[in-house]
């Protein structure tokens, strides 16, 4: 299988009044097609910068970002994005919010087809019946579901998510994890998930990448292939607990609170 996302030796710094602030240093990440990759790391280590790099919103100072065998130099319509803030447009209905990318990305779908596609996705995440509501009439979890629909409505190859469930309460979050599995079963996309929640990363991702503290580089890659994935119970198995322990330790190393131990 080929790698859909290839990040090769990326170094990036932000310009500040006190000179450049390095956030990423010689970062290498490869994500095979169809895989789901979670990125975890200490706060402020440059995870959000990484999403903007993959989306082509910013260019790296050094190194290259490749998607689908093409070098990323500007934004591409084959990418979908979701943020912690669902950023729904308050003046549009839920359906029209989901349709937004189809108004921008060139496509050959008829109006009818677009609407059907959006309605199907909304039904898949459990929002059927809410198509004509305004975002302000929905709960936080429902808004985030609508935001997820919007991020994949144009069938992107890559879905980039920057802590999409971070602002939700624990139970709503678990609901959305399962929704995520449902979406993956129906929609083929390669995912990059930035998160602070190790359980989330283990439950959703095929591999978890731990970034070091700023400037961030790849510190550890954990392959997570839990059997019987979509059941939430899987988080409480010994297998998952072992992985969580290893990740927890790596985070402490990244924070500078623990020494690396041989495994």
């Amino acid at each position: 299988m080929t790698n859909l996302i290839d990040i090769k030796g990326v170094t990036h710094a932000y310009k500040t009044e006190n000179g450049p602030l390095p956030v990423l240093e010689n970062l290498n990440i490869s994500v095979p097609e169809g895989d789901f990759c979670a990125v975890v790391g200490p706060s402020g280590c440059g995870k959000s910068t990484l999403t903007r790099l993959i989306a082509g919103l910013i260019k790296p100072d050094e190194g290259e970002v490749w998607l689908h065998g093409e070098r990323v130099t500007s934004p591409r319509s084959t990418v979908g994005m979701a943020f912690q803030n669902p950023v729904l447009l308050e003046w549009r209905t839920i359906l029209d919010n989901v349709l937004l990318p189809l108004e921008i990305v060139p496509n050959s779908m008829s109006k009818r087809q677009k609407q059907d596609r959006a309605r199907d996705l909304l039904a898949l995440v459990g929002l059927d019946g809410f198509e004509d509501k305004r975002p302000s009439e929905l709960s936080g979890g429902m808004r985030q579901r609508a935001s997820l629909c919007r991020s994949i409505v144009h069938k992107p190859d890559v879905l980039i998510m920057d802590e999409p469930f971070g602002a939700l309460d624990a139970f709503t979050r678990e609901d959305l994890w399962q929704t995520m599995h449902r979406l993956r079963a129906e929609e083929p996309f390669t995912g990059v998930l930035i998160t602070h929640d190790l359980r989330e990363s283990v439950y959703l991702a095929d591999e978890v990448i731990v970034l070091s503290g700023r400037p961030a580089t790849t510190q550890h890659v954990e392959n997570v292939k839990l059997s019987g994935r979509t059941d939430l119970e899987v988080i409480y198995t010994q297998e998952a607990t072992d992985i969580l322990h290893r990740l927890r330790h790596q985070i402490e190393v990244a924070q500078g609170r623990a020494e690396v131990v041989a495994q």
Partner: peptide, 29 residues
């Protein structure tokens, strides 16, 4: 205007004018 609003459209390759017309203008009304 929150940067995420701009990013949502920019990441799809929208022009500055589209961003203004679809997001900045209605949000300012």
């Amino acid at each position: 205007l929150e940067p995420e609003y701009r990013d949502i459209l920019r990441s799809l390759g929208a022009s500055k004018w589209t961003i203004f017309w679809k997001i900045a203008l209605p949000k300012t009304l």
